[in-house]
Write a protein that binds this DNA or RNA. Sequence first.
DNA 1: AATTCGGGGCC
DNA 2: GGCCCAGAATT
Length: 427
Amino acid sequence: MTDEETRNEAANESAAQERERRVRERIGTVEAEESKAYFSRELLLWYDRSKRDLPWRRHRDPYFIWVSEIMLQQTRVDTVIPYFNRFIERFPTIRDLAEAPQEDVVKMWEGLGYYSRARNLQAAAQQIVELHDGKMPSEREHVFALKGVGPYTAGAILSIAFNRPEPAVDGNVMRVLSRYFLIEDDIAKPKTRVAMEKMIPELIPEGRASDFNQALMELGALICTPKSPHCLICPVMEHCRGRIEGMERDLPIKTKAKKPRPEQRLGVLLEGSGEHEGRVLVRRRPKTGLLAGMWELPHIAAGSGAEAGDLGLDVAQLEELLEDRGLAWSPMSPYLTAEHTFSHIHWTMRVLIAREESETLAHLAAESGVPYAVAVPEAAEAEDELIDEETGEEWRWISREDMETIAFPNLFLNILNRYFAGESERE
DNA sequence: AATTCGGGGCC
DNA sequence: GGCCCAGAATT
């Protein structure tokens, strides 16, 4: 074999390898394309026969879609359904929502959590009335400009209500995509969501954006569930790389959240007497921060640092809070202890109970040396309502009937409902 | 990019 | 008891 022949041979060889590489690449591409087309096709077929009958799916009213999507943020479908029905009954149109008192809107949200969602929802309704004649806009920038509407919700409204081929990537979608395409990026990172949003438009079949995005989430909710996905009945299991590689239980990859920091709180349920008979003292939280603007029983941060565990010091501090309001009361006794976990804080709430004493009785008791009248306010100007315009903090004596109009977070809602129901559970 | 916003259901 | 959920706003 001459040198030239050898070179030709080598050239042919490398050309053949090159052809084969291209063929493989093409097959890979074809497989990838078929895998995508298969995914979209089978997912839609499955959705058409399996979709749930949900209240907001009975009409394609952008207002209903919008309200449902806000409620569904970090919240399960089963939890949302009764809230959605009550909300739409109370506020049937965007204009009704825009014109309602804010307390009514928050009251309808009571127990759902993330209460800024309710305030933002109403603020956005007012935006829509002012800027869009009370009708939900269908342009991306206008939808995105609404308060409380981020990348997911904007995409959900545009695709579900207006059938626009926009991505609506939530936790469900990231879980499904990470398994089907075996994507090992950390879904806790924003850039992973952005990358997945880029994948969506080419997966959406022509004219089926609304159904496709809902189908993706429906699959995540019903089949491709977090812990043990139901691969055997999954409509796209044949080409799911996560399942094929045996990785379905390891995906998606998500860095762990920190656990909530513990906080001890000491609260008081003060029963009114005299003109406050049958009422209970409550306080409205500042309009920013945790549980902003919600009502609660008065409470303080208890035992931190060196004084941890010294209930006496905590009680003294709690009493000072009431004295500042010009109040007097009979001795406090343990009432109950409740736990409550937020996403970033864990409360252990000890609640004491006491009965209001009129100023006169308190004075008399003090003068006569009766031991249980523990506080005599110097400047007793106990008004029924005290409002701090600066912070939004407010105090009020409320009756059982007031429970129907002012909004409490679940922790206090449960305590007060039990109290007004007449149960007397003591520690 | 990290933290702050609730609450409940499930394993 | 940890994890997750049809996330957005703020820092």
